[in-house]
Structures are given as structure tokens and as C-alpha cells.
Amino acid sequence: MINIGLTGWGDHPDVYSPGSKKTERLIDYSSHFPIVELDSSFYAVQPERNITKWINETPDGFQFIVKAYQGMTGHQRGENPFESVDAMFEAYIKSVRPMKEAGKLAMVLLQFPPWFDCKKEHVDQIRGISEKLKEFDLAIEFRHQSWYSPELREKTLEFLRENNLIHSVCDEPQAGDGSIPLVPISTRTDKVLVRLHGRNVHGWTSPGHGQKWREVRYLYDYNKEELKEINEAVNSLNSTTDQVYVIFNNNSGGHAAGNAKAFKELNGLEYNNLAPKQMDLFEGGF
């Protein structure tokens, strides 16, 4: 089964009902897509009231891919707000657990930074983190090309298989060591994650954008041929894996929702577990 969604629900105006409030955006979103990536959990461990609200606002069967807190994956700069590493993990687990108990947690996504290369120290770190979060299904996303070098690619995939970790398959700009190739291989038979970051090579690597770097990094609109190319990879994964989760992350210019709807139409998909407030704002596709 191919499940299509977007990163977050707060910045996709094309899916909101006319006149809807900011607080209703997840409800609107869930009338269009059956999954979402929760990225606010990367910046701060979310309080229980937020998690409970999001669980209650979404229909039965709706699934969250929850991003790991930045302090857990080596992204954090400056002082960690937690008194210890154990306290950080305990807070995160307590935050995410209600989603699992509600049957709405697809996986926790551990996205490692571009400087996290393939070496024993980092492999051991993944093992340690996986042990701490063992009650959850975990997806691993690398950003350093060394994990997929000709001599290490199969070892990387085998490591994920051996540790029952979900492979995060990425489509992103091919821009040196800080990017990875599209490797459409699933390391579990039940779940695989596909994240589509766009192909903006200049925006991916250029430090000259200052504070606007994140806005430029994911500025990309997939064309028909590119979506067809990605679709081949996704359907290959679908032939080996029960659930394929496809997340469009190319939203710097607001293209993610339209690309996701076009991808849904390309596969002739209709979802039954959507919120009843559905409005088709994408009639005609491309």
C-alpha cells in the first residue's frame, strides 16, 4: 500500500478549507492525506497536550511519522535543555508513546546530519539510540554519502536489516558528500519510508543564503517525468513491502501538496481513512 503525505500541516495553504482557522489546519490536512511527518518534534519535545490534541483531531487509521528530537541525532547546537541524555530520551519517549498507544504512530524518524559519516563510532551510536527507543519502529535517514559508497552500501543495508530498522529512501540533490543517492531498497517487509526533498542542487549546498537557507534548500517543483521516475522506485518498493510511506518535503515554494496530489493521481489512489471535511482543490492535477 502506498501512503502519501507531506512534511507538517501548517504551511500548505492549498489544502485548507476557505475561512478555516489556524487551529483547524490538521483537520483540513487529514481530509486530503492519510499520513503526515511531524517535524516540530525535531525542534522541541512536544508536550502531552499537543500530542493528545493531534491524536483527537485525526481520523482512525491516520498515521504520524514523528521526527526524533535534534539532541538525539547530533544536530543540536548550544546547550541541551535536558539535565542528562537519559532525561532527554525519557521525555521524548513519554511524549511519543501516546501516539503508539492510539495506533497512530507509523514510525520515529532518526535523521542524521551531513557530517555523520560511516564509521564504527557512528554505527555504535545508532545501536545505542535504537536500544533506548526500542519500543518504537525506527527509520534511519543518512545525509552523508559514505553510507552508500560502493564498498559500504550493502553493509549499510545489512546493518539496518539486522537491527530491524526502516530504511529512509531519499530523493535529493546530488551535491557531494552531504547528499545521498536514491536507493529504493526496503530493509523490512512491513514498512519503508520515502522522503522527497526536491532536486535544488544550488540551494542544497550554498551557504550564501544566510537565514533564508532553509527556505531555499527545499525550493523545488517536481515535473511529470521526475514524478514518473520516482514512481518506478516507489512501486518497486511496494512490490516488496506492505506499507510504503511517501513524504513530500519540497515545500519551500509551496509545491509539496500539488506534487503529492499529482503523485496520488499517477497511482490511481483513493484513501478511505480521510477526515470527512474533504474538498478536492486539485481537480485536473497538472
Rank of each mutant, 00 (worst) to 15 (best):
C170L: 05
R188A: 11
K155Y: 12
D190C: 13
G203V: 11
N238E: 11
V183P: 06
K191A: 12
K67E: 12
Q125W: 01
H197N: 13
K94R: 14
L196Y: 05
G74V: 06
H144E: 09
G268A: 09
T241D: 02
I180C: 15
Y92M: 14
Q70L: 05
W54Y: 14
S84W: 04
Y245R: 04
V234L: 03
E37R: 00
E162D: 12
N272A: 13
K155A: 13
H32Y: 00
A233L: 03
D242R: 15
K104H: 02
D11F: 12
Y29P: 01
V45M: 01
L196H: 04
F136E: 00
M107I: 14
Q111H: 08
S146C: 06
I247F: 10
G78W: 14
K120F: 11
H167L: 03
L38C: 11
M88S: 10
G285P: 01
M72Y: 02
G61A: 08
D177G: 04
D221P: 02
P18S: 10
W213I: 11
D242P: 11
L182G: 00
P113I: 00
G103I: 08
Q145P: 05
N200P: 06
N267V: 14
L237T: 07
P181Y: 06
E101H: 06
A139T: 08
F142E: 06
G210M: 07
I247P: 11
V45S: 07
H202W: 12
G103D: 06
I55S: 01
I180P: 05
L26N: 06
L165C: 04
E226V: 07
I2F: 04
F64H: 02
L160H: 02
T241I: 00
L160E: 03
N250R: 11
H12V: 02
E141G: 11
N223S: 04
H167Y: 07
T240P: 00
I2P: 01
A87T: 12
D60K: 15
F82T: 07
T189P: 12
E158F: 05
E270M: 05
S146I: 03
S239T: 15
E225C: 09
Q174E: 09
V108G: 02
R153E: 15
E172K: 09
A260M: 00
I2D: 05
V194P: 05
T189S: 15
D280Y: 04
T189C: 09
Y43D: 08
A106S: 12
G103F: 03
Y43T: 04
K67Q: 09
V234Q: 07
K67F: 07
P13F: 08
L105Q: 02
S17W: 08
L152D: 09
L196S: 01
